[in-house]
């Protein structure tokens, strides 16, 4: 099971994207679980994370998150703006998977 975490500012904008990603993963038969959390809740959700993606509006968190997560071997990046803006579940899922592969 691969745990993908999407971070945005107040959990407002990512939930739709998350559900789309989960749907795509299911269709493809991938053992993936995507969740969305708000910036403030990251601290409490650090255990079950394999990949972390940041919404473009919280891109300022990148250095901090990288520092925090990469020691655990968790890759962190920003969601591709266009994929994010168009809420393209498939593309974002691809991005997440590629981050794991690259590792």
């Amino acid at each position: 099971m691969l745990n993908i975490v999407l971070v945005c500012s107040a959990g407002m904008s990512t939930s739709l994207l998350v559900s789309k990603m989960n749907k795509v993963a299911k269709e493809k038969g991938l053992d993936v679980n995507v969740i969305a959390i708000a910036e403030a809740d990251v601290k409490n959700n650090m255990d079950k994370v394999d990949v972390m993606l940041l919404g473009p509006q919280v891109r300022y968190l990148l250095p901090k998150m990288r520092e925090m997560m990469e020691v655990k071997g968790v890759p962190v990046d920003i969601v591709d703006t266009v994929s994010y803006g168009t809420m393209d579940g498939e593309k974002v899922l691809e991005q997440a998977l590629s981050m794991v592969k690259d590792k």
Binding site: C8, S13, L16, P56, Q57, Y60, T81, Y84
Partner: peptide, 19 residues
């Protein structure tokens, strides 16, 4: 605001209003 972030902000506000 950096333009990438704007996209995120647009979604943030759009969902805010929807919510």
């Amino acid at each position: 605001v950096v333009s990438d972030a704007k996209i995120g902000i647009v979604l943030h506000i759009a969902f805010l209003i929807d919510n």
